[in-house]
């Protein structure tokens, strides 16, 4: 059954979109990743214009992060104070990111910019994940944990910078500058790449801010809700690139897939699957990179409007 996506201006099979949503939702439920970094390239592969894929993903991630954040909220695993500082940065970053997006769009280079940033990020993440899962599989084979030498960690940057504030929920007394900067960087990524940015925010919160791991995911999701909501409105207003029908179909598939993924994660051994996910990320990255360097079959592009 074909459905016409009014903003993407293509006809796509409904079942394909629901399946994509469910598949990526399954992975995100299983591994606790947002999935935006996989969904956007997959949408591009099925013919959705990259600019529409990115903006629509921001809309979809708003939905998935609400579900996730509510679950963490019930367990009290959200540091609202920290979330608000991250959000302050996120607002600035996403406003700047949408301007950058509009500028690149007017130059006719937005599609290439999106693909290029994905190649860089997916390459990095895929390599890290592959490395980690290979190590984990090896550890399993050798049987038991290898004791790592404990290093003395230096005093984190967040404690050396000025403008410190107390974060009772995280038991921290740190400068507010790092959370704002982290939020801003992630805000730009939401606008340009259509990702939630959890894959950057979570490690940054753990290693830079030294937040306790039990509040990290909830707080990151809390911030992502507001930033993706803002980006959706800004992209719709400025670039007309949010496809609400595409978003709703992906949300529907994603919600179901994520629930199955969460349940599956309890039964299946995750390490082997993590290696599979790493492989998938690297494959998507290579395909995007190939499309950037291979001689295109069509040498011309049409851009509506004058320059």
């Amino acid at each position: 059954m074909q459905i016409y996506l009014p903003i993407a201006e293509i006809s796509v099979n409904v079942l394909l979109l629901l399946g994509l949503g469910a598949g990526v939702g399954f992975l995100s439920g299983m591994f606790g990743v947002g999935g935006g970094f996989l969904m956007t390239p997959l949408l591009i592969f099925i013919g959705v214009p990259p600019a529409v894929a990115v903006s629509t993903q921001a809309n979809q991630i708003a939905a998935t992060s609400v579900s996730g954040a509510l679950a963490h909220w019930r367990r009290g695993a959200v540091d609202v104070r920290m979330g608000l500082y991250l959000l302050a940065g996120g607002i600035a970053g996403s406003v700047a990111g949408v301007q950058l997006f509009a500028w690149l769009k007017s130059l006719g280079q937005i599609d290439i910019a999106i693909a290029l940033s994905y190649v860089v990020f997916l390459g990095g993440i895929g390599a890290l994940m592959a490395f980690e899962s290979i190590q984990a599989l090896r550890r399993d084979r050798r049987g038991g944990q290898v004791a790592r030498p404990r290093r003395r960690r230096p005093r984190p940057l967040a404690q050396r910078l000025p403008m410190r504030a107390r974060f009772p929920r995280s038991h921290l007394y740190v400068s507010i500058i790092p959370p704002i900067v982290i939020g801003a960087v992630v805000g730009v990524l939401v606008a340009i790449m259509g990702v939630g940015g959890g894959f950057i925010m979570v490690p940054a919160m753990i290693y830079l801010l030294r937040m306790p791991t039990n509040v990290v995911v909830g707080t990151s999701l809390f911030q992502i809700i507001f930033v993706t909501a803002l980006v959706t409105v800004l992209q719709a207003t400025q670039n007309h690139t949010v496809d609400i029908i595409l978003a709703l179909l992906l949300i529907l598939g994603g919600v179901i897939g994520a629930q199955i993924g969460v349940r599956a994660a309890m039964k299946v051994k995750a390490e082997a699957l993590r290696a599979l996910l790493a492989g998938l990320v690297l494959a998507v990255c290579l395909k995007l990179a190939w499309d950037l360097i291979a001689t295109p079959s069509e040498m011309y592009t049409l851009i509506p409007g004058g320059l």
């Binding site: 809309n59 708003a62 939905a63 579900s67 509510l70 409105v233 978003a247 529907l252």
Partner: peptide, 18 residues
């Protein structure tokens, strides 16, 4: 308005799912 609707739909869907 369209952007607000898109966000409202997404938030509602996410909340419903939860």
């Amino acid at each position: 308005l369209y952007g607000l609707l898109a966000v409202a739909a997404a938030l509602l869907a996410g909340w419903l799912a939860a």
